[in-house]
Each structure stands twice: as C-alpha cells, then as structure tokens.
C-alpha cells in the first residue's frame, strides 16, 4: 500500500517534466512536417496548396544545401579537433605544479562566459578587421599584406572564433578528469621505466576517454546549431562560403519568408542531428552510466 502510494507520488512528480518536454518535442515537429508539404510563403496569403515532396526536392538539390552541409561538418569537426587537442594540452599543462594556478585557470575559463554575439563582434572588428584590426596591424608592421579574414577565409575565421569560445570548456573538463587520475599508479609506472609518452598514451589518455566523450557530446549539440556567430560576422557569405544548415534555414524561412521550404530544411536538419545523436548516444551509453 505504502509502496503503491509512493510510486504514484513519484510518477506525479516526474510527469510535468516529461509531458512538457513531450509537447515541446512533438507539437512543433508535427507542424514542421505539415508545413513542409505545403506551398506556403508568408508574402502570399490565401490557399496553401499541398505540393508533396517538392519542397524537399528543391531544398536538397539547391547547391546552397550541399555547401551548407559540408560547411556544417567542417565547422563541427574543425572546432572539435582544435578544442580536444588544445584542451588536452592545456589540461596537462595546468595539471603541472605551477605558480598561480588558480589565476591561470580563471583566465583560461573566461571566454566560455562571453556571449556569442560579443565574442563574434569583438573578433570581427578588433582583431580580424583588415584595416583597424590588431592582426592587420601586426601584419603590416612585419611587412606583410593584411588578410581580410572574413572575406578571404570566412569559414576558418568562424572556426577560430568558435574554438576560442569552446577551448575553455574542453580544458576545464579534461583538467578536472586528469586531476582525478591516481598519482601513485603514475609514479609506479615511472619507476618501472615507462616513458613520458607511454604514460600519456596508456594511462592518461584512457583515463580521459570518459571526459572526452562528454566534451564531444556537449560541443556537438551546440556546434551543430551555431547561429549568432555567423549572423553578426559574415551573414553566411561571401556567397554561401560560411553558411551552415542552421543559417541557411533561417535565411530561407525568415528572410525569404518561404515557410514550406524552411520547414523541409528544418526537417532535414533534424534528421541529420538524429543520425549524429545515435552515434553519440551509443558512445555515451558506453561511457556514462546514469
């Protein structure tokens, strides 16, 4: 009796969260699917004809989609690579006995708390601007032609900006993980003649795999839908050079008012995210137990 009661109570406590998330997931998604079959432009009121899969055909065969698909992958993989490698290096460095470690850690962590619009605008104007930016100043004073980062290498520039935002996160997680490593084991291995490299390869790295999984998971969630950084720096350009899927769909639906096409694109984005998610969930299922 008591257990039945408490079970009912437990269910009652859990259900608001589950129901809300279910609604949040299902209602808009069903609407997106519905719109994606319609010829629906906000500029053209009146009937929205059912046009079957035409929106999907237009979206998927649009060269802009192919560009933005690869841009999305390059962006995610590029940032993941930089932050994982850089983060591991930094974590090992900060794990050494150094003076003022807490202060150093605070400095390294700070970019994570900078809102995306601020970091993108600061980098765009004060560092990457070809006339007044700091990089241009250093280039000219060394006798080089200044680079116009955002028009000559827009995607790389965005990767740099986003990596700067996420490197602190990776470093902090990996540092915390390294600090939980058993020191005595490491010392024993050293006494047994294991070199620096093999200690890193066979002891530190395996120990970090769980933390790395967490970093990859969280970063991928956020990196797949990068938006603000592109909006305020390049607006996707020049051409489609720095358009990712999120930005493409935004511009089709809210700048060109094509609800049908935007919805079809949104659904494609959901499918891509799901494919990625399946991989990630497998990884996390192995590495993180509830």
């Amino acid at each position: 009796m008591a257990t039945n009661n408490s079970r009912a109570l437990a269910r009652a406590m859990l259900s608001p969260a589950v129901i809300l998330l279910l609604i949040w997931m299902v209602v808009p998604l069903v609407m997106t699917i519905y719109f994606s079959f319609l010829d629906y432009n906000l500029f053209m009121p009146g009937e929205h004809d059912f046009i079957g899969l035409l929106n999907y055909e237009f979206f998927l065969t649009d060269p802009a989609f192919v560009d933005s698909f690869f841009n999305t992958i390059i962006l995610v993989v590029g940032v993941l690579f930089i932050t994982l490698v850089g983060g591991t290096g930094l974590a090992i460095l900060l794990d050494q006995a150094i003076y003022g470690r807490n202060f150093v850690r605070i400095m390294v962590l700070a970019p994570f708390f900078v809102m995306p619009t601020v970091s993108a605008l600061v980098w765009k104007n004060m560092f990457m601007n070809p006339v007044n930016g700091l990089f241009a100043y250093f280039a000219t004073s060394l006798g080089f032609e200044p680079i116009d980062f955002l028009s000559q290498m827009p995607l790389t520039s965005i990767i740099i900006i986003v990596s700067w935002q996420w490197l602190p996160f990776a470093s902090l997680i990996l540092l915390t993980a390294i600090q939980s490593l058993d020191r005595e084991q490491l010392e024993a291995a050293e006494l047994d003649g294991a070199g620096k490299f093999s200690r890193f390869r066979f002891m530190v790295l395996p120990h970090l795999s769980r933390a790395m999984t967490a970093v990859v998971l969280i970063e991928t969630i956020f990196l797949l839908s990068i938006f603000a950084e592109i909006l305020v720096t390049t607006a996707g350009g020049p051409g489609n050079a720095s358009t990712n899927i999120s930005y493409l769909i935004y511009s089709q639906s809210l700048l060109e008012f094509d609800v049908g096409m935007g919805s079809a694109g949104g659904l494609v984005a959901v499918i891509i995210a799901n494919i990625v998610a399946i991989f990630l969930m497998r990884m996390i299922g192995k590495n993180i137990e509830g």
């Binding site: 935004y250 949104g266 959901v270 799901n274």
Partner: peptide
C-alpha cells in the same frame, strides 16, 4: 539534440 531550426517556423 533537436536542432532549434527544426522547430523555428
């Protein structure tokens, strides 16, 4: 993991 653009419209 549901991308925001999927439910934007």
């Amino acid at each position: 993991m549901l991308p925001p653009v999927g439910v934007l419209i």
